[in-house]
């Protein structure tokens, strides 16, 4: 939540600022701010876990101009034509790296993981994979205690203070997008000052499940998720299906038209999970990636050397 100690915006936000694009981005964010009040009003009417989310940007100008009680329907579009797995800058995938740093994700969690999939004709493609935010979420269906739940905005969140650690949700997830705190994770001391909230999941709690949450606390503050801020190629879009807009931080697109025109697909669509993450097929061709160049840099976690104690493990 925004009035708790706020997770820091990542370093990558500054790194990627394009002067001309940030203008457009600002326009978009104003749009967002206008909608935040309506989202907040609706969210207050339907409290999640009995506590209404408190909007950070709720007092922004335009709050009076609420047009309806329509809810946000957050979505992500991932343009695989622009993803080169950060090969060109010879660094670990910056989306994953920013997510780890922004969320204090314990080692070895990659809430957005860049998989390298084989193409049928040879070569590979990189597939950044956050939680798919299913609208028919298998994980929510099987949770015995309602610790993982769908919000009215269509996000799947986890209340780690309720989770009993049975891990049936990890069995149910067909995308391998859930992570368990097998031990007490090694995390830097600053995490301990954060007030726990399901929307940012810090500090991580031993014996509970974590995952990508689509950064609703940043959206409410009018900012983009860490991964999207950090992508050097602007391959990731974040937006609202209700308002039919999305941005990668540089361009704003009309989401429905963008998805149609790019022949978008969703992962394992046949399973009927109805993900809110859309993929535009490609293998980095718009950023001149050679599909036959394989491999990416492994992700790094800064925590173990900053932490006083705690454990790391492998996946």
């Amino acid at each position: 939540m925004a009035n708790a100690v706020e997770p820091p915006e990542t370093v990558s936000a500054a790194r990627k600022a394009h002067p001309e694009s940030s203008l457009r981005r600002r326009t978009f964010l104003k749009w967002l701010a206008a909608g935040v009040a309506s989202a907040a009003a609706a969210a207050a009417a339907q409290p999640v876990l009995g506590q209404a989310p408190q909007p950070a940007g709720g007092s922004a100008p335009g709050a009076g101009a609420v047009r309806s009680k329509r809810l946000r329907r957050w979505a992500m579009a991932i343009d695989l034509r622009r993803c080169d797995g950060c090969q060109s800058i010879d660094k670990p995938p910056q989306c994953t790296q920013a997510c780890i740093e922004g969320h204090y994700a314990p080692q070895p969690m990659q809430w957005i993981e860049v998989y390298e999939g084989a193409l049928p004709g040879g070569g590979t493609q990189f597939i950044p994979t956050p939680c798919q935010q299913c609208q028919n979420p298998p994980c929510v269906n099987v949770c015995p205690v309602g610790a993982t739940f769908s919000t009215p905005e269509g996000l799947v969140l986890i209340d780690q203070e309720r989770c009993i650690g049975c891990r049936i949700c990890m069995e149910a997830c067909p995308y391998d997008r859930r992570f368990f705190n097998w031990g007490q994770p090694a995390l830097p001391p600053d995490v301990m000052f954060m007030k726990y909230d399901p929307e940012h999941q810090s500090p991580a709690i031993k014996g509970t499940v974590m995952k990508c949450n689509f950064c609703p606390q940043l959206a409410r503050a009018g900012r983009l998720p860490y991964c999207i801020q950090a992508c050097p190629n602007n391959a990731l879009y974040y937006g609202d299906l209700e308002e039919d807009l999305a941005t990668n931080g540089r361009d704003v697109v009309k989401l429905s038209r963008f998805l149609t025109e790019t022949s978008t697909y969703r992962l394992k669509e046949h399973l009927g999970t109805e993900p809110r993450v859309f993929y535009i097929p490609g293998h980095g061709e718009l950023v001149d990636r050679d599909p036959h160049r394989k491999g990416r840099k492994p992700t790094a976690w800064p925590w173990p050397k900053r932490a006083q104690r705690g454990a790391s493990w492998t996946r």
């Binding site: 891990r167 368990f180 097998w182 007490q184 014996g207």
Partner: peptide
């Protein structure tokens, strides 16, 4: 110490 003392991990959970 948590379930880290077992052989289970995220992918075979």
């Amino acid at each position: 110490r948590g379930l880290i003392v077992t052989g289970m991990r995220d992918r075979i959970s």
